[in-house]
Each structure stands twice: as C-alpha cells, then as structure tokens.
Design a protein around this nucleic acid. Structure first.
Length: 608
DNA sequence: GCCGTTTTCGGCCCGACTGTTTTCAGTCG
C-alpha cells in the first residue's frame, strides 16, 4: 500500500508525478494565467518538508501534506475557486482559514512567504538529505548541523571519510548504508506501470504457492487498488504452522538484496529494482491485514476514525474493543464492524467512498465481463501488426459482439495512415469479413487526427460513410490552454465525431499531454453527443481516474478501448476497466457495455 | 493547522523493524 516514503517525497518528485495530471484539469479565465493545482500542492509539500526538518509540530506538518493531497486530486482549478473567495477554499476538507489565505497568496503572487521564511531558518540541504532511505527529519538535521553537510554530495563525502559514525545515534552500519543508498536516490520514487508489476507479482506468487501447505496469499497495496503505477508490491500471507513462508520469500531467486527480515515481515529488492514486502499474519487477522495493507493510507485513517467513534481499535490484526479481539478473518468483517458494506479496493482513496458507503450509494462498478466490444483497434492497414481479419477472429473468440477497426488518417504519416480511397477499400474487406463472421460484427472506423485548427483529417463524405469516428490529438500537444480548448471543442462539434480518444495524449513514461479547459470540453462533449475514451494502453490510461470521474458525473458517456496494435494487446481491456473502476464508473456509463443495436444508436449514423 | 453527536480546546491512526543502546528513538509503511 505504502508506495513511497511520503515524508521524504521531494516536492520535485511530486511535481513530476502530479504536474501533468492536474494541468489538464485546470480551468481558468481566459487572460489570467492560472496557477496549476500541482504547483500549489508542491509548495505545501515543500513547506511540510522544511517544517519537518525544523522540528515543527507533526500535526501541523501533516496538515500541509493533507492539504497538498486534497489540492492535487481536486478535479477543479484551485485557482478558480480561490478567485471566488477564501470562503469557498475553506469548504475543502482539511483547509481552514489559514491555509485558504496561503492558497490565495500563491494564486495571486505565485509564491508563499511562509515557505521562503521557513527555508531561511532550516538547515540548508536537510530536505535533500531526507531523500536517502533511513534518513528522516531528525537525522537529516543532525547531519547538516553537526557535520556541516549541505547537499547529497557533502553527505557522500562525510560518509566516505567515516565522519558519520561518530555522531550520536549513528554507527558504522548506518554510515555504510548511506553510501550504498545514495546510489539509489537518483532513481528512487520511480514507479513502474501496474501491468509490468503484475508480471513480477505473478511470478513471485507462483513461486510462493509452490510451497506445500501455504495458506491465503494476496498482493495488496496500490496494486490491488489498480493504480496506474505502483512503487512497490505488498504481499500478505496467512501464517501456517511450520510453513516457512518468510524464508522461502527471501530465498526467491530474483531477490537481489534482503532489506529487512523480522518475525512477521520481510522486505526485499528484486533484480528489477522493484521492492517487495511480505507480511505474515495469523489466520484470524488475514482479512484485517488485507484491508490494512490495501490502503490507501487516507482510507485507512478514515476507517479507523469511524472505529474510534465506536470505541473500536482497528489495526492489521483485527477489530478490538477494550483489547479484546472481535473480528478480522475476512475483509468484510472490518467494514461490518464500522457499519459499512464492503468497499471495492479501487475506490479506497478517501475520495468520498466512505460517505457513499454510509449513504448506501456506492456505485456498482463496471466489470470486465460487462464489456461487449472494443471501439479502438488498429490493423496492418496502418500501424497495427496484425491484419484486421485476424484481429476480428480473436475478438470473436473472446466473446465480443463488435470490434471497431480504427486505422489512422493520412496526417499521421508515421503510422501509415489511410486516405479516403484506403478507407473505402477497407470497408469492402470488412463487409466481406462480416459476411463470414458468426457472432462478431466489425465496425468500419477511423482514428482521425484533429488538425491544429480543430478541423478533421478526412473529408466529410468519408467520415459519414464510416460506422464509427474516433478523433484524437497527435501533434501540437503544447498549445496554450485557450488554443487547445478551442481546437478540441471545434472537433467535438463535428456531427460525425463519436469518440474522443486518449484525450490528453499523455504518456506515463513522461510526456505530459495536452492542457485544455476540462469543463468546457466536457460541456461540448455532452452537447454534441461525443463520448470520451479511457484508453487502456498501460502507457496511456488516458483519461486518468479523476478526470474520467468528472466526465461521468457530467453525464458524458465513456468508452473503454484497448487501442490494440497487435493481437495480445486486445487483453489490455482489463487495465482500462481498472482505471474506470477507480473513476467510480458504472456499466451504464460505458458505451461499449451495450449491445450492438443500442451502441449504433449512440454513433453518428444513429444520432441523426 | 484542522476540527467538532464528548465541540473552541485538546485531540489528531497504529505497529514493525533497525540500529544503537541497554530501554528506545527514528524511520517507515
């Protein structure tokens, strides 16, 4: 669950992690350059780091971190809210009069005086030193003050010179570990795509399950919550007498180093660099442990607060009253204890799921089984690696009712896009294919490039003749927010447009994607019957969870598509469904859960 | 710094592991 050492996550790391996501959500007036939510969050995180080094009240530090998270995850521009008045800001959870004032200051000046002042007082370099695992605020401060260290380079010199071991609370082991772990600081905080983590996790689970007599075994953490990336894997095992699960775990051949090894927990780093933690719990605690280690941290805290109100103590061992164990065998027992129905892991972010559970309004989330077809796929006619006939056969064998083949339009030259004659010829092949197929219908489609001025890259006659028109941005992702918004809205206004695919164009490996005014784009989609896609490619997962949720709440229909460029990629659907579930999306909010006849009514041919 | 069905003060989630010290602080999740 705990994907990264929160207390030491640098503001820079947070900026990298949140920047692109939040930027796409920002809304603003046309002339004023809005301060992105991510920037406000970064400043608060930085202030929390500095205050922590200074030894400030831990709850005050926590308040800044909590506010940073709230703002980073907000689907609306905090800048716009601030301009409506500080009273609106103080409505946000965890933000009171003081923080509201500080947000306003950031929005108006781009900076925060409190941060500059705190930085002035704090020992220089301490925040950087905290990036090293095992060095928290106390030790970082001690190092900086006692050894005159002001940077990671200075820390390395001090460690190599053997000056650290002399400090009280430090020893030779710690000194050696610092030298070793400094190497990792550069790559620390790198999260890997969940589907990639799944490959490592599956291999490890298989290895552990080969141990005779092994009990329940699960991967918890952000992996179980289907976050798009994970920082580590949290495994949970049921304790079975005389089954040496921890020993087996640390002896896994892929283990590069054992980071910690105790009676109930071990932590290893695999050769891939992925950290894996295994926690072993008694049988009666497995459910409580699964809940605890699935997180998120914010969700857990909220659940424990509910428990406190009922005089219950909730931890990874179970639910207790006056020290007496009450429940914990199954995960739902924990929810039972605080009067809630079981909440799906994908919702456990403390983003309203507990309130919804209390009100009995938890959404019935879309499932992989609900999906009846795929509305964005590619073939060898453009940049795919399998002929459309083969893609169709595989889709039929998966039990799909329909498959849209959506090869690229001409402008995307690198993808070998088709022109009008190309699409006409492809349509003939699709007609022939449909005559042969028994249960699957292939829809003739296109992924049409949205040109910089918002026009489409195919003529109207060609677009009208297609069964489904998917549009997407492939160039000029860095236009200003105002220009990008105009461009997208113009495209969505076109009467033939059905789906806006991978709307921001972001890549999780780093490309930040387009920035547009989400409110305006959602309104345009709603007005013109355009649908927004959750692209299931592991690198994309675009829309993200928060934006997809905002879209669904606005009544915009979603599609979940694989954007498959090869046969195996048709299986990416599960990742898109996971993302949709994190966005609270139900079956009825996803167009490709509908039977073909109903789907056709939603497409441009049926809308007219 | 926030917050309120014990409400404007006094709380704020909870336990494991490591290293150093010898009973525990610091860190992490």
């Amino acid at each position: 669950m705990h994907t990264r050492r929160r207390s030491t996550e640098s503001a820079a790391a947070q900026r990298r992690r949140h920047g692109r996501l939040v930027a796409t959500r920002a809304t603003r007036a046309s002339t004023h350059q809005a301060v992105p939510n991510a920037e406000v969050a970064r400043i608060f995180t930085e202030l929390a780091d500095v205050l922590e080094v200074e030894g400030a009240n831990q709850f005050r530090v926590r308040a800044y971190r909590s506010a940073a998270r709230t703002i980073a995850e907000l689907p609306h521009s905090v800048d716009a809210i601030a301009r409506q008045g500080v009273g609106q800001l103080a409505e946000l959870p965890g933000i009171g009069t003081d923080l509201a004032g500080k947000i306003l200051e950031i929005v108006e000046t781009g900076r925060l005086r409190a941060l500059r002042e705190a930085e002035h007082h704090a020992p220089q370099g301490a925040v950087a030193v905290m990036q090293v695992p095992g060095l928290g605020p106390k030790r970082a401060r001690l190092l900086c003050e006692e050894l005159n260290i002001h940077s990671l380079a200075g820390l390395r010199r001090a460690a190599q010179a053997g000056r650290i071991r002399a400090l009280r609370g430090f020893g030779i082991k710690t000194e050696q570990r610092i030298v070793r772990d400094l190497e990792r600081v550069a790559t620390a905080g790198e999260r890997i795509l969940r589907p990639v983590a799944a490959q490592y996790g599956d291999g490890l689970l298989e290895y552990l399950r080969a141990l005779p007599g092994v009990g329940r075994l699960e991967i918890a953490g952000s992996f179980r919550r289907y976050k798009e990336t994970v920082g580590d894997l949290d495994l949970l095992a049921e304790r079975v007498t005389k089954v040496p699960i921890l020993a087996r775990f640390t002896e896994y051949p892929e283990v590069e180093s054992v980071l910690a090894r105790g009676q109930t927990r071990a932590s290893v780093r695999l050769r891939s660099g992925l950290q894996v933690d295994l926690r072993v719990l008694p049988e009666r605690s497995f459910g409580a442990g699964l809940h605890y280690f699935t997180g998120s941290k914010a969700h857990n805290i909220a659940i424990r607060r509910l428990g406190q109100q009922l005089s219950l103590k909730i931890n990874e061992y179970g639910v207790f009253r006056d020290g007496k164990w009450l429940a914990g065998r199954e995960e739902k027992d924990v929810f039972d204890a605080v009067g809630l129905p079981w909440i799906p892991p994908e919702l456990r972010e403390d983003r309203g799921e507990i309130e919804a559970a209390q009100a009995g309004t938890l959404p019935k989330l879309v499932t992989l089984d609900d999906i009846r077809g795929d509305l964005q796929t590619h073939s060898t006619d453009s940049d795919g690696r399998a002929p459309l006939e083969e893609m169709a056969d595989v889709a039929e064998s998966k039990g799909y009712e329909y498959l849209a083949v959506t090869d690229h339009s001409p402008r995307v030259r690198i993808a070998g896009g088709l022109n009008r004659d190309g699409f006409r010829a492809q349509r003939k092949r699709i007609d022939t294919l449909n005559a042969r197929l028994r249960t699957l219908t292939v829809l003739a489609g296109a992924e049409v490039d949205i040109l910089p001025d918002g026009k489409l890259d195919l003529d109207d006659g060609t677009l009208e003749a297609l069964d489904i028109v998917v549009v997407a941005l492939h160039s000029k992702l860095t236009l200003s927010m105002a220009e990008q918004t105009r461009r997208v809205v113009r495209a969505l206004e076109h009467p033939s447009v059905d789906v806006f695919a991978h709307p921001t164009g972001r890549l999780l490996s780093g490309r930040s994607g387009a920035t547009f005014d989400l409110d305006v784009v959602l309104q345009a989609a709603a007005d013109h019957g355009a649908m927004l896609e959750i692209d299931a490619q592991p690198e994309r997962l675009d829309l993200d969870d928060i934006t997809a949720r905002a879209a669904a709440e606005r009544g915009v229909l979603l599609t979940i598509d694989t954007d498959a460029h090869a046969v195996p990629e048709l299986d990416f659907m599960r990742w898109g469904v996971g993302q949709a579930r994190r966005a609270w999306v139900t079956k009825s909010q996803v167009a490709n859960t509908r039977p073909l006849a109903e789907l056709r009514k939603l497409l441009h041919g049926g809308r007219r």
